[in-house]
Design a protein around this nucleic acid. Structure first.
Length: 823
RNA sequence: GCCGGAGUGGUGGAAUUGGCAGACACACCAUCUUGAGGGGGUGGCGCUCGUGAGAGUGUGCGGGUUCGAAUCCCGCCUCCGGCACCA
């Protein structure tokens, strides 16, 4: 008899078995209910880290669980294979990015297999393959034709480390999301996706996402940043020109004592002439530009401005007010121009004080009135004053009436502004999807015809930093215009890799389909994704892009629903010694080494057991050992039971007292593990199985004559319940217990409510809310009986004696609380 | 500034609905097994007082609601996250 569990041989054995039997290959089957488990696809950086292990072990536990429950499970994986690290590695090591990427994929695929994750490898995708990115290009062209893609010159986020442009979502606290270096502002011509067109839908449809964490809802709401107000035009004194502003406080417009433009405002450019004022303004604008976005937008940055020498008219009262330029007005929000109401806006107030501009109170609080000399702006709603016919109205009423008035007079209307900006998608880098556009001197921008897709990324000798290598390949760049056949040039920018990951989960449903990005029936069958698991760091990157793409694909007629993911689960990070694992900190744990020493099952158990999945997890070698010991403990009892013969092997015999208790515990555990898996509490599910094993040991330690039939029954339940977490071990265990069919498709155990119910329950006796005693009773005991038994209880009596019983609270099957007076 | 989350033993964490606080595990202690190491078995383990039975106390702090609060309400403290000169 083999006393030691040989995890190395066992894990290899079952991994081979699973691969050969193709147990995880999913087939569409209209007679079966489907379940689509998705995890965020990894970037092939070189090796799996423990964060991946946690993410994919979580998903795997659900995939295996659902499969055993009889659902037709789709559990795919792929590689987010384009991106900058491949280029950097290529430069450092002198190997092509493609080679580096494919080698990494091979390594990491092996690691995935050695973890025993139940993936359908027939659907594997790599976004860097032409068969995949061809459809990026196809979608890009379709979006262009629908007016959802456009090219514009303007201020962009530039990362000088990465030598490329970044989308707003990729700038975190003014720094690059990838390398943390400071992001600069540059003027460049760029391709954009019109995500702002979908701002309202992206906000509205959050309502459909009931099973997404509130946190992600709020993050997306904040990011979209909808704000409702009005647009008002202020005519300039000179000429026909008007300045459009956006305000959420139209009720304060009689207090507007000046206008402020952003230094980058279009009008300002025309004013920077050779006059003294013009030159002064030019100097100021230049200075503000040099200040940089980070400094400019910091709240404590000193407000700086300059008078333009020009005036505009407040359309409500006809008064002329001066126009200023100042650093605190941003071109990237609203119209890049504001009406300044110093009495009722703190920023305007500070600015007015500094430059001695008038402060005009037009809102008084509901009760009392503001002092004549304000110390700070009064920013609350209130009652209007000094506002012509609107005086005396509440802010709310006034806003309604004033916008109607503005509308009737034609100088204003209701308006909505979003913080969300269009998604900048072109990148000045090599290792990405070529943008399928051609620049023709005659025809302008012409998309590559569908029949010519994919535009294959050509091989290059080197991808030296600071250059767009595609621009140096004449054979790539020079093409004939698809429309006029004249000489033309290809676009040399590539797409943001977030485009690749915005729709990959659709591709899994028909990964080899080659006449469209997706096959209709397959998407119909598998969608929506039932659960999507990944890190919360993607809450406003990938998770907003993916929702946007779904809506675009719907509007292109490819799919017919609004949201792709029913339930989102965001798992916590894996920390070591209190901080995130990173190469620079040198606290990285390698899954390979752990697998070598403890096996994949112990590792899987540990990452699922040590913390609730949605919280951060602290890596602990000791904790890992504990999980390893648990498996060995289970192995020993399994071997022991195998070696025993039941002297009275027959199911008809009555179980002993302890035997009944063990079977009861088993049914309770089945119930608990099932519930805990549904609610993503893998940690307590595993704890419950550990408890059950403890009960088995307790039973076998006490009972001289083991009911071997019962023990086998319990061990079978453990094998099934534990198999989503430790699949190799359980597959082996299942075989040892005499089953020839695979545990993968064995039905998930169900609990018998009769058995799951407690036989004798313990009733707590409280006196004044404090636990004083307990007695046992059978479930369903009447309230009267409970009360009587509690009052008879010897220990309780000691606390009641000599006191008046005021009240007795009885909670059926649980407790009796006797409330007594002081004496 | 706005919005949100968290705070429970020496440690990670349990406690689906207001009803036995500390499940499960780690660490530690005792003890058995072993030549030793390792491994394993059994028992103990919030804090204070007590030889003991037991008593008191206890879920960041201060109040409140309730027969009963880790859980609900109000006010604070600390840490973490999102947005932020956003008009």
């Amino acid at each position: 008899m083999n006393d030691h569990y040989d995890f190395i041989a066992t894990e290899e054995k079952w991994q081979q078995h699973w691969a050969q039997a193709e147990e995880f290959v999913a087939q569409e089957d209209s007679s079966a209910n489907k379940y689509y488990v998705l995890e965020m696809l990894p970037y092939p950086s070189g090796a799996l880290h423990i964060g991946h292990v946690r993410n994919y072990s979580l998903g795997d536990s659900i995939a295996r669980f659902k499969r055993m429950q009889g659902l037709n499970v789709l559990h795919p994986i792929g590689w987010d294979a384009f991106g900058l690290p491949a280029e950097n590695a290529a430069i450092q090591r002198g190997i092509p990015p493609g080679q580096w990427t494919l080698e990494n994929i091979a390594t990491m695929k092996k690691q995935c297999q050695s973890m025993g994750w139940a993936y359908d490898w027939t659907r594997e995708i790599a976004t860097c393959s032409p068969e995949y990115y061809r459809w990026n290009q196809w979608l890009f062209v379709r979006m262009y034709q629908k007016g959802l893609v456009y090219q514009r010159e303007g201020a962009v986020n530039w990362c000088d480390q990465c030598k490329t442009v970044l989308a707003n979502e990729q700038v975190i606290d003014g720094c690059c999301w990838r390398d943390g270096s400071e992001v600069l502002e540059k003027e460049l011509e760029q391709w954009y996706f019109r995500i702002t067109e979908y701002a309202d839908q992206l906000l509205e449809d959050l309502g459909q996402l009931e099973d997404w964490p509130d946190k992600v809802h709020r993050m997306q709401q904040n990011w979209i940043g909808k704000s409702v107000g009005c647009a008002v035009s202020f005519p300039l004194d000179e000429g026909e020109v008007k300045i459009d502003i956006f305000t959420t406080r139209l009720d304060t417009i009689y207090g507007a004592t000046f206008l402020v433009l952003a230094p980058e405002h279009q009008l300002v450019k025309g004013w920077l002439d050779d006059s003294d004022e013009g030159r002064q303004m030019a100097r100021f604008v230049e200075e503000m530009r040099r200040q940089g976005k980070e400094v400019r937008t910091a709240e404590d940055t000193e407000k700086q401005g300059i008078f333009t020498g020009r005036y505009a008219t407040n359309p409500f009262d006809g008064r002329a007010i001066p126009i200023w330029i100042a650093n605190f007005v941003l071109m990237s929000y609203g119209t890049g121009a504001i009406m300044a109401v110093p009495a009722h806006d703190q920023r305007d107030f500070e600015f007015a004080r500094k430059y001695e501009l008038p402060i005009q109170v037009v809102i008084q609080p509901e009760e009392g009135s503001l002092p004549p000399e304000l110390e700070q702006a009064f920013t609350e709603h209130g009652v209007l004053a000094n506002s012509d016919t609107f005086s005396g109205l509440s802010s709310r009423e006034a806003q309604e009436k004033m916008v109607n008035f503005a509308q009737s007079q034609g100088f204003g209307e209701k308006s909505v502004t979003y913080r969300l900006r269009d998604w900048s998608v072109s990148r000045q880098r090599y290792w990405g999807t070529p943008i399928p556009m051609i620049h023709c001197p005659k025809c302008g921008v012409v998309p590559v015809p569908e029949k010519d897709l994919p535009v294959v990324l050509p091989k290059v000798e080197s991808t030296r930093m600071g250059q767009s290598p595609l621009a140096n390949l004449p054979e790539f760049v020079n093409v004939s215009c698809p429309e006029c056949r004249g000489e033309a040039q290809r676009e040399t920018d590539t797409m943001d890799t977030f485009v690749d990951s915005s729709w990959y989960f659709y591709r899994y449903t028909s990964a080899q389909y080659d006449s469209a990005p997706i096959r209709d029936e397959s998407v119909r069958y598998w969608f929506p994704v039932d659960i999507y698991i990944g890190g919360v760091e993607h809450a406003i990157l990938h998770l907003i892009y993916m929702r946007f793409f779904t809506k675009v694909m719907r509007d292109l007629g490819l799919i017919s629903f609004d949201e792709p993911v029913r339930r989102l689960f965001t798992q916590g990070m894996v920390l070591k010694d209190g901080s995130a694992m990173s190469k620079s900190r040198g606290n990285v744990v390698s899954p390979d080494e752990v697998i070598q020493e403890y096996g994949a099952d112990a590792l899987r158990l540990f990452v699922l057991f040590a913390a609730p999945p949605d919280r951060d997890l602290d890596w602990s070698e000791r904790g890992l050992e504990g999980c390893f010991r648990f498996l060995n403990r289970l192995w020993r009892i399994l071997r022991q039971v195998q070696g025993e013969n039941d002297p009275s092997a027959s199911g008809s015999r009555e179980l002993s007292q302890r035997g009944r208790a063990l079977r009861r515990k088993t049914h309770q555990t089945i119930r608990k593990v099932t519930q805990d898996l549904e609610r993503m509490h893998q940690n307590t599910a595993i704890a419950a199985i550990m408890e059950l094993l403890n009960s088995v040991y307790e039973y076998s330690g006490h009972e001289e004559q083991h009911e071997v039939g019962l023990l086998k029954e319990v061990l079978e339940a453990i094998a099934l319940l534990l198999s989503p977490f430790a699949p190799h071990f359980c597959a082996e265990m299942w075989e040892i217990l005499g089953h020839s069919e695979s545990i993968t498709f064995t039905a998930w155990p169900t609990n018998d409510p009769e058995w799951a119910r407690e036989e004798g329950i313990s009733i707590v006796v409280q006196v004044n809310g404090k636990v004083r005693s307990r007695f046992s009773a059978s479930p369903g005991i009447s309230k009267e009986q409970m009360e009587a038994l509690a009052l008879e209880d010897e220990k309780a009596k000691g606390f009641i004696e000599g006191k008046t019983i005021r009240q007795v609270i009885v909670v059926p099957d649980k407790l009796v609380n006797i409330v007594v007076g002081k004496d």
